[in-house]
Design a protein around this nucleic acid. Structure first.
Lengths: 179, 179
DNA sequence: TGATGCATGTAATCCGTTACATGATTCA
DNA sequence: TGAATCATGTAACGGATTACATGCATCA
Protein backbone atom coordinates (compact mmCIF):
# COMPACT_ATOMS: atom_id res chain seq x y z
CA UNK A 1 0.00 0.00 0.00
CA UNK A 2 1.23 3.46 -0.83
CA UNK A 3 0.78 6.92 0.58
CA UNK A 4 -1.76 7.80 -2.08
CA UNK A 5 -4.10 5.07 -0.89
CA UNK A 6 -3.49 6.10 2.68
CA UNK A 7 -4.49 9.70 1.92
CA UNK A 8 -7.58 8.47 0.12
CA UNK A 9 -8.41 6.39 3.17
CA UNK A 10 -8.00 9.32 5.53
CA UNK A 11 -10.13 11.51 3.29
CA UNK A 12 -12.85 8.87 3.13
CA UNK A 13 -13.67 9.76 6.74
CA UNK A 14 -13.64 13.51 6.37
CA UNK A 15 -12.16 16.24 4.21
CA UNK A 16 -8.84 17.54 5.45
CA UNK A 17 -5.66 19.39 4.62
CA UNK A 18 -2.29 17.70 4.22
CA UNK A 19 -1.33 18.99 7.61
CA UNK A 20 -4.42 17.49 9.20
CA UNK A 21 -3.89 14.15 7.51
CA UNK A 22 -0.37 14.09 8.88
CA UNK A 23 -1.70 14.70 12.37
CA UNK A 24 -4.28 11.98 11.93
CA UNK A 25 -1.54 9.56 10.90
CA UNK A 26 0.69 10.67 13.77
CA UNK A 27 -1.79 10.84 16.62
CA UNK A 28 -4.91 9.10 15.42
CA UNK A 29 -5.76 5.46 14.90
CA UNK A 30 -3.55 5.18 11.82
CA UNK A 31 -0.49 5.86 13.91
CA UNK A 32 -0.41 2.32 15.25
CA UNK A 33 0.25 0.66 11.95
CA UNK A 34 1.37 3.28 9.44
CA UNK A 35 3.99 5.99 8.99
CA UNK A 36 4.09 8.97 6.67
CA UNK A 37 5.86 12.30 6.53
CA UNK A 38 5.03 15.64 4.93
CA UNK A 39 7.55 14.92 2.21
CA UNK A 40 5.37 12.09 0.98
CA UNK A 41 1.89 13.37 1.84
CA UNK A 42 1.98 16.72 0.03
CA UNK A 43 3.15 15.34 -3.31
CA UNK A 44 0.65 12.48 -3.03
CA UNK A 45 -2.20 14.90 -2.51
CA UNK A 46 -1.12 17.04 -5.47
CA UNK A 47 -1.02 13.96 -7.64
CA UNK A 48 -4.41 12.71 -6.47
CA UNK A 49 -5.89 16.09 -7.34
CA UNK A 50 -4.40 15.99 -10.83
CA UNK A 51 -5.91 12.55 -11.30
CA UNK A 52 -9.32 13.75 -10.16
CA UNK A 53 -9.50 11.41 -7.17
CA UNK A 54 -9.76 14.34 -4.78
CA UNK A 55 -10.97 17.94 -5.06
CA UNK A 56 -9.23 20.95 -3.64
CA UNK A 57 -10.64 24.00 -1.92
CA UNK A 58 -8.46 26.80 -0.60
CA UNK A 59 -9.45 28.22 2.76
CA UNK A 60 -8.11 31.69 3.38
CA UNK A 61 -6.43 32.31 6.67
CA UNK A 62 -4.91 35.37 8.25
CA UNK A 63 -1.17 35.29 8.78
CA UNK A 64 -0.81 31.79 7.36
CA UNK A 65 -0.65 30.17 3.96
CA UNK A 66 -4.04 29.20 2.61
CA UNK A 67 -5.27 25.95 4.01
CA UNK A 68 -5.82 23.50 1.18
CA UNK A 69 -8.73 21.34 2.07
CA UNK A 70 -8.99 18.13 0.10
CA UNK A 71 -12.12 16.01 -0.33
CA UNK A 72 -12.48 12.61 -1.93
CA UNK A 73 -14.46 12.30 -5.18
CA UNK A 74 -16.55 9.44 -6.53
CA UNK A 75 -13.60 8.38 -8.63
CA UNK A 76 -11.52 8.48 -5.47
CA UNK A 77 -13.95 6.20 -3.69
CA UNK A 78 -13.74 3.76 -6.58
CA UNK A 79 -9.95 3.88 -6.57
CA UNK A 80 -9.88 3.25 -2.84
CA UNK A 81 -12.28 0.32 -3.12
CA UNK A 82 -10.13 -1.12 -5.88
CA UNK A 83 -6.94 -0.72 -3.83
CA UNK A 84 -8.67 -2.43 -0.93
CA UNK A 85 -9.66 -5.38 -3.08
CA UNK A 86 -6.11 -6.58 -3.68
CA UNK A 87 -4.71 -9.02 -1.15
CA UNK A 88 -2.82 -6.99 1.44
CA UNK A 89 0.89 -7.48 2.05
CA UNK A 90 1.85 -9.30 5.21
CA UNK A 91 2.39 -7.28 8.35
CA UNK A 92 5.89 -5.94 8.75
CA UNK A 93 7.35 -5.60 12.18
CA UNK A 94 10.77 -4.05 12.74
CA UNK A 95 12.19 -3.99 16.22
CA UNK A 96 15.60 -2.78 17.27
CA UNK A 97 14.48 -3.55 20.79
CA UNK A 98 14.23 -7.27 20.05
CA UNK A 99 17.55 -7.18 18.21
CA UNK A 100 19.09 -5.65 21.30
CA UNK A 101 17.48 -8.28 23.50
CA UNK A 102 18.73 -11.07 21.26
CA UNK A 103 22.22 -9.65 21.69
CA UNK A 104 21.85 -9.22 25.43
CA UNK A 105 25.03 -11.18 26.11
CA UNK A 106 26.76 -7.97 24.95
CA UNK A 107 24.86 -5.87 27.47
CA UNK A 108 25.16 -5.17 31.17
CA UNK A 109 22.21 -6.10 33.42
CA UNK A 110 21.64 -2.41 34.05
CA UNK A 111 21.45 -1.67 30.33
CA UNK A 112 19.00 -4.52 29.82
CA UNK A 113 16.70 -3.19 32.52
CA UNK A 114 16.80 0.30 31.02
CA UNK A 115 15.97 -1.11 27.59
CA UNK A 116 13.06 -3.12 28.99
CA UNK A 117 11.72 -0.13 30.85
CA UNK A 118 11.94 2.03 27.75
CA UNK A 119 10.05 -0.53 25.70
CA UNK A 120 7.43 -0.82 28.42
CA UNK A 121 7.05 2.95 28.52
CA UNK A 122 6.67 3.07 24.73
CA UNK A 123 4.01 0.39 24.81
CA UNK A 124 2.14 2.23 27.52
CA UNK A 125 2.28 5.47 25.55
CA UNK A 126 0.71 3.68 22.61
CA UNK A 127 -1.88 2.13 24.86
CA UNK A 128 -2.89 5.39 26.50
CA UNK A 129 -2.97 7.08 23.11
CA UNK A 130 -5.35 4.39 21.94
CA UNK A 131 -7.60 5.07 24.92
CA UNK A 132 -7.51 8.75 24.11
CA UNK A 133 -8.78 7.90 20.62
CA UNK A 134 -11.54 5.90 22.25
CA UNK A 135 -12.52 8.80 24.49
CA UNK A 136 -12.22 11.45 21.80
CA UNK A 137 -15.74 12.26 20.68
CA UNK A 138 -14.52 13.98 17.52
CA UNK A 139 -13.07 10.64 16.47
CA UNK A 140 -14.69 9.03 13.47
CA UNK A 141 -16.94 6.11 14.36
CA UNK A 142 -16.96 3.22 11.95
CA UNK A 143 -17.00 -0.52 12.68
CA UNK A 144 -13.31 -0.70 11.77
CA UNK A 145 -12.30 1.59 14.63
CA UNK A 146 -13.48 -0.80 17.28
CA UNK A 147 -11.66 -3.67 15.64
CA UNK A 148 -8.39 -1.84 15.18
CA UNK A 149 -8.40 -0.53 18.74
CA UNK A 150 -9.29 -3.95 20.12
CA UNK A 151 -6.53 -5.62 18.13
CA UNK A 152 -3.99 -3.00 19.10
CA UNK A 153 -4.95 -3.17 22.74
CA UNK A 154 -4.69 -6.95 22.79
CA UNK A 155 -1.26 -7.03 21.17
CA UNK A 156 0.18 -4.07 23.08
CA UNK A 157 -1.08 -5.36 26.41
CA UNK A 158 0.39 -8.79 25.78
CA UNK A 159 3.78 -7.23 25.09
CA UNK A 160 3.60 -4.99 28.14
CA UNK A 161 2.59 -7.86 30.41
CA UNK A 162 5.44 -10.01 29.16
CA UNK A 163 7.98 -7.28 29.81
CA UNK A 164 6.62 -6.56 33.27
CA UNK A 165 6.99 -10.24 34.07
CA UNK A 166 10.60 -10.35 32.88
CA UNK A 167 11.40 -7.11 34.64
CA UNK A 168 10.10 -8.49 37.93
CA UNK A 169 12.17 -11.64 37.42
CA UNK A 170 15.31 -9.66 36.72
CA UNK A 171 14.85 -7.37 39.69
CA UNK A 172 14.26 -10.18 42.15
CA UNK A 173 17.37 -11.90 40.77
CA UNK A 174 19.29 -8.67 41.24
CA UNK A 175 18.22 -8.50 44.86
CA UNK A 176 19.28 -12.07 45.49
CA UNK A 177 22.66 -11.44 43.89
CA UNK A 178 23.15 -8.39 46.10
CA UNK A 179 22.50 -10.37 49.30
CA UNK B 1 19.95 -0.02 12.85
CA UNK B 2 21.39 -0.98 9.52
CA UNK B 3 22.17 -4.19 7.66
CA UNK B 4 25.83 -4.00 8.62
CA UNK B 5 25.00 -4.22 12.31
CA UNK B 6 22.57 -7.00 11.57
CA UNK B 7 25.27 -9.02 9.79
CA UNK B 8 27.64 -8.42 12.66
CA UNK B 9 24.97 -9.64 15.05
CA UNK B 10 24.36 -12.79 13.05
CA UNK B 11 28.08 -13.47 12.84
CA UNK B 12 28.45 -12.98 16.60
CA UNK B 13 26.69 -16.33 17.03
CA UNK B 14 28.61 -18.29 14.43
CA UNK B 15 30.62 -17.75 11.29
CA UNK B 16 28.55 -17.94 8.12
CA UNK B 17 28.29 -17.09 4.45
CA UNK B 18 26.03 -14.38 3.10
CA UNK B 19 23.65 -17.03 1.93
CA UNK B 20 23.48 -18.57 5.38
CA UNK B 21 22.92 -15.20 7.04
CA UNK B 22 20.03 -14.59 4.67
CA UNK B 23 18.51 -17.92 5.64
CA UNK B 24 18.94 -17.12 9.30
CA UNK B 25 17.17 -13.81 8.80
CA UNK B 26 14.44 -15.46 6.78
CA UNK B 27 13.76 -18.58 8.81
CA UNK B 28 15.51 -18.07 12.13
CA UNK B 29 14.69 -15.94 15.12
CA UNK B 30 15.62 -12.71 13.34
CA UNK B 31 12.78 -13.22 10.89
CA UNK B 32 10.19 -12.00 13.37
CA UNK B 33 11.49 -8.49 13.64
CA UNK B 34 13.88 -7.85 10.76
CA UNK B 35 14.01 -8.01 6.96
CA UNK B 36 16.97 -8.13 4.60
CA UNK B 37 17.60 -9.23 1.05
CA UNK B 38 20.70 -10.47 -0.78
CA UNK B 39 21.02 -7.13 -2.46
CA UNK B 40 21.78 -5.55 0.88
CA UNK B 41 23.58 -8.39 2.67
CA UNK B 42 26.33 -9.08 0.13
CA UNK B 43 27.49 -5.47 -0.19
CA UNK B 44 27.34 -5.06 3.60
CA UNK B 45 29.57 -8.08 4.10
CA UNK B 46 32.07 -6.84 1.53
CA UNK B 47 32.20 -3.50 3.27
CA UNK B 48 32.59 -5.04 6.73
CA UNK B 49 35.51 -7.04 5.42
CA UNK B 50 37.20 -3.97 3.98
CA UNK B 51 36.82 -2.26 7.34
CA UNK B 52 38.33 -5.21 9.16
CA UNK B 53 35.23 -5.98 11.20
CA UNK B 54 34.96 -9.45 9.71
CA UNK B 55 37.42 -11.90 8.14
CA UNK B 56 36.82 -13.87 5.01
CA UNK B 57 37.71 -17.45 4.18
CA UNK B 58 36.85 -19.07 0.86
CA UNK B 59 35.61 -22.63 1.01
CA UNK B 60 36.03 -24.46 -2.25
CA UNK B 61 33.05 -26.37 -3.53
CA UNK B 62 32.47 -28.54 -6.56
CA UNK B 63 30.06 -27.21 -9.15
CA UNK B 64 29.32 -24.09 -7.15
CA UNK B 65 30.90 -20.73 -6.52
CA UNK B 66 33.27 -20.72 -3.58
CA UNK B 67 31.45 -20.35 -0.33
CA UNK B 68 32.68 -17.21 1.38
CA UNK B 69 32.64 -17.82 5.09
CA UNK B 70 32.74 -14.68 7.19
CA UNK B 71 33.76 -14.49 10.84
CA UNK B 72 33.59 -11.56 13.21
CA UNK B 73 36.85 -10.00 14.46
CA UNK B 74 37.65 -8.31 17.75
CA UNK B 75 37.15 -4.95 16.06
CA UNK B 76 33.80 -6.30 14.85
CA UNK B 77 32.79 -7.21 18.38
CA UNK B 78 33.67 -3.71 19.52
CA UNK B 79 31.70 -2.15 16.68
CA UNK B 80 28.69 -4.31 17.51
CA UNK B 81 28.86 -3.43 21.20
CA UNK B 82 29.05 0.23 20.27
CA UNK B 83 26.07 -0.03 17.93
CA UNK B 84 24.15 -1.75 20.71
CA UNK B 85 24.92 1.03 23.16
CA UNK B 86 22.90 3.67 21.31
CA UNK B 87 19.27 3.97 22.27
CA UNK B 88 17.31 1.85 19.81
CA UNK B 89 14.67 3.33 17.54
CA UNK B 90 11.08 2.64 18.45
CA UNK B 91 9.43 -0.44 17.07
CA UNK B 92 7.86 0.04 13.68
CA UNK B 93 4.77 -1.86 12.79
CA UNK B 94 3.22 -1.64 9.33
CA UNK B 95 -0.01 -3.40 8.67
CA UNK B 96 -2.05 -3.30 5.52
CA UNK B 97 -4.35 -5.74 7.26
CA UNK B 98 -5.32 -3.16 9.90
CA UNK B 99 -5.70 -0.49 7.23
CA UNK B 100 -8.11 -2.81 5.43
CA UNK B 101 -9.99 -3.47 8.65
CA UNK B 102 -10.27 0.24 9.40
CA UNK B 103 -11.80 0.66 5.94
CA UNK B 104 -14.14 -2.28 6.37
CA UNK B 105 -17.16 -0.17 5.47
CA UNK B 106 -15.85 -0.52 1.92
CA UNK B 107 -15.74 -4.31 2.13
CA UNK B 108 -18.28 -7.10 1.88
CA UNK B 109 -18.75 -9.39 4.91
CA UNK B 110 -17.27 -12.23 2.89
CA UNK B 111 -14.16 -10.21 2.09
CA UNK B 112 -13.73 -9.31 5.75
CA UNK B 113 -13.89 -12.93 6.82
CA UNK B 114 -11.33 -13.92 4.18
CA UNK B 115 -9.00 -11.14 5.33
CA UNK B 116 -9.35 -12.19 8.97
CA UNK B 117 -8.68 -15.80 8.11
CA UNK B 118 -5.59 -14.86 6.13
CA UNK B 119 -4.24 -12.80 9.00
CA UNK B 120 -4.94 -15.63 11.42
CA UNK B 121 -3.14 -18.08 9.13
CA UNK B 122 -0.14 -15.73 8.87
CA UNK B 123 0.04 -15.39 12.64
CA UNK B 124 -0.13 -19.15 13.05
CA UNK B 125 2.66 -19.63 10.52
CA UNK B 126 4.85 -17.27 12.54
CA UNK B 127 3.89 -19.05 15.72
CA UNK B 128 4.70 -22.50 14.42
CA UNK B 129 7.95 -21.22 12.96
CA UNK B 130 8.86 -19.90 16.37
CA UNK B 131 8.20 -23.31 17.87
CA UNK B 132 10.37 -24.87 15.20
CA UNK B 133 13.20 -22.57 16.32
CA UNK B 134 12.59 -23.70 19.86
CA UNK B 135 12.78 -27.35 18.87
CA UNK B 136 15.75 -26.95 16.53
CA UNK B 137 18.76 -28.23 18.41
CA UNK B 138 21.20 -26.54 16.00
CA UNK B 139 19.71 -23.24 17.10
CA UNK B 140 22.01 -20.95 19.00
CA UNK B 141 21.29 -20.82 22.71
CA UNK B 142 21.75 -17.50 24.41
CA UNK B 143 19.58 -15.82 27.07
CA UNK B 144 18.22 -13.49 24.42
CA UNK B 145 16.62 -16.34 22.46
CA UNK B 146 14.28 -17.27 25.23
CA UNK B 147 13.22 -13.66 25.68
CA UNK B 148 12.63 -13.00 22.00
CA UNK B 149 10.65 -16.19 21.56
CA UNK B 150 8.61 -15.51 24.67
CA UNK B 151 7.84 -11.96 23.56
CA UNK B 152 6.95 -13.07 20.06
CA UNK B 153 4.74 -15.85 21.30
CA UNK B 154 2.90 -13.54 23.69
CA UNK B 155 2.21 -10.90 21.06
CA UNK B 156 1.38 -13.28 18.23
CA UNK B 157 -0.93 -15.35 20.41
CA UNK B 158 -2.78 -12.26 21.61
CA UNK B 159 -3.38 -11.22 18.00
CA UNK B 160 -4.52 -14.69 16.97
CA UNK B 161 -6.90 -14.99 19.92
CA UNK B 162 -8.45 -11.63 19.19
CA UNK B 163 -9.06 -12.57 15.57
CA UNK B 164 -10.53 -15.93 16.48
CA UNK B 165 -12.94 -14.17 18.80
CA UNK B 166 -14.03 -11.69 16.15
CA UNK B 167 -14.31 -14.42 13.55
CA UNK B 168 -16.59 -16.42 15.82
CA UNK B 169 -18.73 -13.32 16.42
CA UNK B 170 -19.02 -12.60 12.71
CA UNK B 171 -19.93 -16.15 11.84
CA UNK B 172 -22.63 -16.43 14.46
CA UNK B 173 -24.04 -13.11 13.22
CA UNK B 174 -23.96 -14.45 9.70
CA UNK B 175 -25.95 -17.51 10.75
CA UNK B 176 -28.56 -15.39 12.50
CA UNK B 177 -28.89 -13.18 9.44
CA UNK B 178 -29.40 -16.25 7.26
CA UNK B 179 -32.26 -17.52 9.41
C1' DT C 1 12.66 35.04 23.91
C1' DG C 2 12.51 30.70 22.59
C1' DA C 3 9.84 26.57 21.74
C1' DT C 4 5.74 24.70 19.74
C1' DG C 5 1.94 24.72 16.58
C1' DC C 6 0.03 25.95 12.24
C1' DA C 7 0.80 25.59 7.20
C1' DT C 8 2.91 24.27 2.62
C1' DG C 9 6.20 22.70 -0.31
C1' DT C 10 10.86 21.01 -2.73
C1' DA C 11 15.27 18.69 -3.29
C1' DA C 12 18.88 15.86 -1.81
C1' DT C 13 19.78 11.80 0.01
C1' DC C 14 19.44 7.31 1.87
C1' DC C 15 18.48 2.69 2.17
C1' DG C 16 16.80 -1.02 0.57
C1' DT C 17 14.23 -4.10 -2.81
C1' DT C 18 13.66 -6.16 -7.35
C1' DA C 19 15.37 -7.75 -11.24
C1' DC C 20 19.05 -9.41 -13.73
C1' DA C 21 23.15 -12.47 -14.62
C1' DT C 22 25.16 -17.28 -14.02
C1' DG C 23 25.12 -22.11 -13.20
C1' DA C 24 25.37 -26.81 -10.99
C1' DT C 25 22.62 -30.16 -8.11
C1' DT C 26 18.83 -32.56 -6.34
C1' DC C 27 14.22 -33.86 -5.76
C1' DA C 28 9.50 -34.69 -7.38
C1' DT D 1 11.51 -31.61 -17.03
C1' DG D 2 10.74 -28.17 -14.11
C1' DA D 3 11.15 -26.33 -9.56
C1' DA D 4 13.75 -25.61 -5.56
C1' DT D 5 18.22 -25.19 -3.20
C1' DC D 6 22.80 -23.69 -3.10
C1' DA D 7 25.81 -19.64 -4.10
C1' DT D 8 27.41 -14.80 -5.25
C1' DG D 9 27.08 -10.51 -7.02
C1' DT D 10 25.59 -5.85 -9.55
C1' DA D 11 22.61 -2.23 -11.30
C1' DA D 12 18.39 0.01 -11.82
C1' DC D 13 14.79 1.60 -9.53
C1' DG D 14 11.55 3.04 -5.99
C1' DG D 15 9.80 5.03 -2.03
C1' DA D 16 10.15 7.45 1.66
C1' DT D 17 12.78 10.34 5.09
C1' DT D 18 15.46 14.37 6.26
C1' DA D 19 16.75 18.69 5.71
C1' DC D 20 15.89 22.93 3.88
C1' DA D 21 13.04 27.20 2.93
C1' DT D 22 9.46 30.47 4.80
C1' DG D 23 6.76 32.85 8.27
C1' DC D 24 3.07 34.15 11.60
C1' DA D 25 0.75 33.08 16.21
C1' DT D 26 0.68 31.54 20.75
C1' DC D 27 2.23 30.05 25.08
C1' DA D 28 5.50 29.64 28.86
Amino acid sequence: MNIRTLCLGALSFKEASGYEIKKEIEDGLFSHFIDASFGSIYPALTQLNVEGLVTLRAEEQTGRPDKKVYAITDAGHDALAKALSVVPARDKYKSEFLFEMLMQHYLSPGHIIVALEKQLADLNIDLSQMNQCKADSSQMRVPGCEFVMGYGEAVLTAGANYIELKLAELKSQGLKAAE
